[in-house]
Each structure stands twice: as C-alpha cells, then as structure tokens.
Computed example of a mutant assay.
Amino acid sequence: MRVRVKGFKIFEDRHGKPRCYHRKTGHKIDLEKAPLGSAEFFAECTRITALSEAMKAQAPKPGTLGGLVSAYFQTEHFGNLADATKRDYRKCADFLHPIRDTPVSSITTPLVAGIHDKAAGKIGWRRANMVRTFLSQVFRYAVPKGLIDKDFAAGVIPKPRPKDRPYANRPWSVAERAAVLDRAAPHVRVAVALIMNTGLDPSDALKLTRNQIEGDTIWGVRGKTAHEVAIPIGPTLKAALDAAPAHDAVTILATSTGRPWTYNGFSTVWHRFKKKLEAEGVVEPGLTLKGLRHTVATTLREAGLEERQIADLLGQKTPSMARHYSRSANLADRNRITMETLEQENERRSKVVKSFTKNVKP
C-alpha cells in the first residue's frame, strides 16, 4: 500500500523498515503504535501538523533567544545558505523551541554548553554540534545589531566523533564503482558517472544545466559554499554523457520520464538500488553518493597530487561570485591536468581490480 501525506516523508530505512517524519519539524511517527495508513496514523499526522502551525504562529518575544533566532532567519546570510543547510538550521531552531523565551541577559557560555550537552544526549553528537554552530551564527549576526554582547557559543568545544563510529561518506572501492555502473539503470548510471568523474556534490550535479557545459568544460558554482568550479570533461565522462538517455529537460541529468531530478527523488531511487546491491553482496554497507567526492580526492592524493590542486578541482577555492567564467580559464587549465591524472589513475586501477566477493562465513 502506497501512502502519501502532504508535509511528511515516508520511506524505508536501511533495514527495510517503514519510517515517517514531518519534513519541517523532523517529528517522527511511531509506526508500531500508529501503523502506516491506519486511522491512528492519520490522526498523528494531523496532530503534528497542527502543532507545527501553532509553533509558527507564536511570535518570539523581543529580548529572548527566540527573538535572536527569528532575527537571524531574516538576515541575508541565512537567505544565501544552501537549502540543505537551511533545513538543518530550522531543525536546530525546532530543538531550541522549548527554551525560546530564555532572556538574552541569561545567555552565557555555560548555558550554551549545557544546551550542547543535552542535545548530544537527545539527538546525537553530530546534530548537537550543528546546534552549537547554529547558535554561533545567530550570536555572530546579533552582536553588530546590539542584540547580544558576544558569541557565547564560540567557547563551547564541539563533541568528538565516537571512536567506534565509522566515518560517513567513505571512498568507494574500484570494484564497487564498476559494479554500480554495470548494474544501474541508464538514467541513474549517468548521474553516478557524472559525480564519480567530477567530484561534484550530488545536489550540485543534479542541478547542472545544459548551458553550464561549454566545449569540454563544466562551469558552475558549489551550492554549499558558492565557490566557483571549472571541471574539464574527460573521455570517460564524455562517453557516459553521450550514452545517456535522450531527454528534453533543461538539466543535464533527468529521470526515466525526462524530468529534472529532485535531490529527494534521486536519493530515494539510489537508496533502493544500493540496498539491493548490498543484499546481493555486490557492495559493502556504507556506500553513499557523497562518498564519490571523497573517492576523487583520495584517488588524486594517492596519485601524488598536491592538496591545492585537488581543492581547485573540488571547488574549495574562494573566488568572487561575480567573476565571469571566462576569467577562470587559468583555473580550468590547471584542473585539466588534474583531471587527466584522475582519468589515468582510474583506468590503471580498473585494470588490476579483482572481482568483488562478499565474505561468507562457513
């Protein structure tokens, strides 16, 4: 049974178990107590939606933490953030909502440290650090306006990654790359190939339009940092793009129906495909699309390239956004040498890779 409710994300987790949460607030629905599609489920959706609307209607009081947060959301800085970062920051604001009436005069570094500790216990170390970062941004932009004395989050030490926790977005093995490209549907294969051969963030790759390709170069701007990128199209990527299904979408990549991908849409398709490969033992767990960006960096570093060369290719430089593509020709030339190294190294590794087999205990 396929169930859709406006404002809610319904999906299967990595264990194939159904999950549901409210997109704006992140509130989860316990599908064991309120099974998907049941009267209890829809009642819970209605309750969470009403709660969200009530929270939105409550105007924050001046001179409070909620007032500072509200003021920050009106800044140009917040408006220029990537959509994913905006969503993360709004989730942080939702977490802080119960203490929104805290007077600004009561905010201290120890108080922020306490909030940070509580967040780590409730939502995990990574999201707790996001709450800390969010508060730091709020305070930084409130200081010049005279709304608060200083950034009280600056002195709070971020939570460390637990030692037993595997790193997210690990690099892909050569065998995994070959297996995914071999098994993926054509419209998915070209998307993976584009990310794999450019090091672009998946969200940026999905947004690329046809007019961002000039000759044999992809020109663009990283959505997360607004850094300019100039990526030469090597033989491998050109072959993948030439073999892609024809479509009329303005974007380079498109769905099987010829429409531009949404990030959530591609993530869902990718997740289902990846889980199938995992179940068959074709890839190891922990394979992510963002891991391909790490793969490019790792491959180039192991091939002996300098960090600055790799950073240029990945768009980690900070040129002005007003700079025209033509003025970045020197960057494109330098990146062409870097891309040639990546092509050569990928070809060399693909020739010596052994077939991927899952370790099976006797």
Rank of each mutant, 00 (worst) to 15 (best):
residue 149 D to S: 08
residue 344 Q to P: 01
residue 110 P to L: 13
residue 273 F to M: 13
residue 26 G to E: 10
residue 333 D to M: 14
residue 91 K to P: 02
residue 137 Q to E: 02
residue 7 G to K: 08
residue 306 E to V: 04
residue 74 Q to C: 00
residue 33 K to C: 08
residue 184 A to R: 11
residue 136 S to Q: 02
residue 77 H to Q: 03
residue 68 L to E: 13
residue 265 G to E: 14
residue 202 P to A: 13
residue 315 G to V: 01
residue 9 K to L: 09
residue 13 D to M: 13
residue 264 N to A: 03
residue 242 D to F: 07
residue 340 E to H: 05
residue 272 R to A: 11
residue 149 D to G: 01
residue 356 F to W: 05
residue 18 P to Q: 08
residue 77 H to C: 10
residue 130 M to T: 04
residue 76 E to H: 00
residue 338 T to N: 01
residue 217 T to W: 15
residue 257 T to M: 10
residue 245 P to W: 15
residue 299 T to P: 00
residue 312 D to Q: 14
residue 354 K to D: 09
residue 271 H to Q: 10
residue 8 F to T: 07
residue 344 Q to W: 01
residue 264 N to F: 00
residue 165 R to V: 07
residue 305 L to R: 10
residue 71 A to P: 08
residue 151 D to F: 14
residue 154 A to Y: 14
residue 60 P to Y: 01
residue 218 I to T: 15
residue 168 A to C: 02
residue 170 R to K: 14
residue 343 E to M: 09
residue 197 N to S: 03
residue 77 H to N: 00
residue 16 G to T: 03
residue 281 G to Y: 01
residue 183 R to K: 15
residue 342 L to S: 05
residue 150 K to Y: 05
residue 288 T to I: 05
residue 262 T to R: 15
residue 53 E to Q: 09
residue 172 W to G: 12
residue 346 N to E: 14
residue 298 T to L: 11
residue 329 A to N: 06
residue 108 T to P: 03
residue 163 K to Q: 09
residue 64 T to V: 08
